[in-house]
Design a protein around this nucleic acid. Structure first.
Lengths: 334, 334
DNA sequence: GCACAAACCTAGAACGTTCTAAGCCGCCGA
DNA sequence: TCGGCGGCTTAGAACGTTCTAGGTTTGTGC
């Protein structure tokens, strides 16, 4: 199609069908108020001309856009699951999504700024780094829901996983299997690192294992796990919980290379249920976030705000669940 | 923000600054034709009121939208790299991107349909499954660029990686190391499977290794690789090229578990340079697609079409490159 | 003091929809 | 016969911008 060619509009269809533009509009929106005969005639004309309504003109006129803006990171695998869930939930509620991604070369601030020009009625953010202050400013203008980030800012709604509870589940599982000497490999400055560490410590205390608490420095990458596992080897516990799956993959490999059997000599639990954990030869026991629940709640909350319904609680916390695979078992010498 | 609250418009800013809307428009677009004094006054007013131009109204009025529509799969890690590159390339060319994702619950057809209402000037598709016929229909209406899919349809531009050449490079590398008995594990019905297999066969022939050609059935998943590797063990070659990294991970694990040393006893080459390949303990030699080149070319082609410039060749093929890591080496007994 | 240009500014139309209000038509009940 | 009603249809305004064309001011050269 050359640039000069005009796209077909309501007026073209109206002319072709021999009716007014208003009537065509009624038919295209499937609204009541057109005779079956004219309805058929208009639809035929629209089909013949390949007419597509212009969303921008449509939104410009009507006061509601029924559009939710979503900011997500294009490199993050879990964000893919979340966007999937958001599309589903929004579709069910009769809303549409408009996406804006942040990438290594396009930061969250730009991604958000771009969305603000788009007339959406609320924002759903999978934000890592936008400052609390900016999020608060944003929320002062329009309903703002932040996903998976424990943030406290006025007017900002937060939907997140209960990361502490995730580690409670991991530790409970290990204790049930008979473990007592359970270490934790930390996530350093990563987003949920503190909550997971706290969860580990709480659970150990609850089981009367305060004396066994052992937190090793780590990080989110697989070589962080590798390094931490080497530290571990000087005096191996019977089980270890790891900040995330990626790091756990490094841990697993190091343990096995040094001759330890997993889970025979040592059990390992990851976090995220990422694609690595599902590789058949890794088959990692891990804590899974409930993407479906997170997204349903986020969309629900956004719509409640848009439609002015009362909501209770700025923050909603979703429990994760443990996925038991092949890297945990009873200890040989408990 | 309650629904009743109107967003601030040009007119509000104009009133606040005591000038006409036309002048505010000029200032906001950074167009020539406003005095420095007024420019400052308008910007101050806009800032104070938190004014954001309404992209929809803006696009409605101006004939050019400078918008490229992108359809991508939210579950595919490589699509993340591609979207990153597209944002960069579009930004450099003064265009914007509007994204529409396909997910398990929202197929490509819907993703494309949604974009068509968005006034973009061209479409860039990372499509797996949209039929050739539908792509041709689409391309009849507006410039359409398909990425990473070897398709032949009238008016559709294709930018893709030279998968045959990728396997040439893999085989050449192995032959240079001294290998002769090189097998290939196939990708079954996956998209580029046939091209990669053909590349393997061609390269083997070119090196006079026709007698050594050995293609094993496989697939894109890690357990496909596991199964294929078991077949391999009855009579192990000294090297194997694998359809993709995921499958190669399964191969690696099976080989090692059965006591073979990689790369001592057998070398392994994957395809994609995915995150799995980069895990330190996998550290897989693999063929990398050049996301940057693919995206630069796709954006360039889209814009050439939009602006009516002549282009040569419907299809552009980008060479991949081999990333040598730890899973290839000289054979012990060549 | 005047013509002219340059620089700045603005009124009003236009973009493609939806919405409101009103018009037309045939039919019913009185 | 007439008023009124209900179903269908339409004219025209409105949405928030950009664009065109013209208007006003200021400055400059004679």
């Amino acid at each position: 199609m050359r640039t000069g060619q005009r796209r077909t509009t309501l007026a073209d269809v109206a002319a072709a069908a021999g009716v007014s533009t208003a009537l065509v509009s009624i038919v295209m929106r499937d609204a009541p108020g057109a005779s079956p005969a004219n309805r058929a005639r208009v639809l035929a004309a629209a089909e013949r001309l390949g007419y597509r309504p212009d969303r921008r003109a449509r939104l410009l006129r009507s006061d509601r856009s029924r559009l939710l803006g979503v900011v997500f990171g294009v490199q993050d695998a879990f964000h893919g699951d979340v966007v999937t869930g958001l599309y589903d939930a929004a579709g069910r509620a009769g809303y549409e999504l408009t996406l804006s991604a942040f990438t290594p070369g396009r930061d969250e601030h730009r991604a958000i700024g771009s969305l603000l020009q788009d007339r959406c009625e609320a924002l759903i953010l999978l934000s890592h780094s936008e400052s609390v202050r900016e999020l608060a400013d944003l929320a002062a203008r329009m309903p703002t829901v932040v996903l998976m980030r424990p943030i406290r800012a006025p007017a900002v709604d937060v939907i997140r996983t209960d990361d502490r509870r995730g580690l409670h589940q991991a530790v409970d599982h290990l204790v049930e299997l008979g473990h007592r000497r359970i270490a934790h490999i930390d996530g350093a400055r990563a987003l949920s690192s503190a909550a997971r560490r706290r969860g580990y410590i709480e659970a150990m205390r609850r089981h009367g294992l305060e004396a066994e608490i052992r937190v090793l420095p780590g990080g989110p990458r697989d070589d962080d796990g590798t390094a931490a596992a080497r530290d571990l080897l000087t005096d191996p516990p019977t089980a270890v919980t790891v900040f995330n799956d990626r790091s756990a993959a490094g841990v697993l490999d190091t343990l096995r290379r040094s001759g330890l059997d997993v889970p025979g000599d040592i059990s390992v639990v990851g976090y995220d249920d990422s694609s690595i954990a599902r590789l058949r030869h890794v088959w990692l026991t891990t804590v899974a976030q409930d993407a479906g629940a997170l997204t349903d709640l986020a969309v629900q909350r956004a719509i409640d705000r848009i439609e002015g319904r009362p909501v209770q609680g700025r923050e909603v916390v979703v429990p994760p669940h443990l996925v038991v695979r092949g890297t945990t078992g009873a200890p040989r010498r408990p």
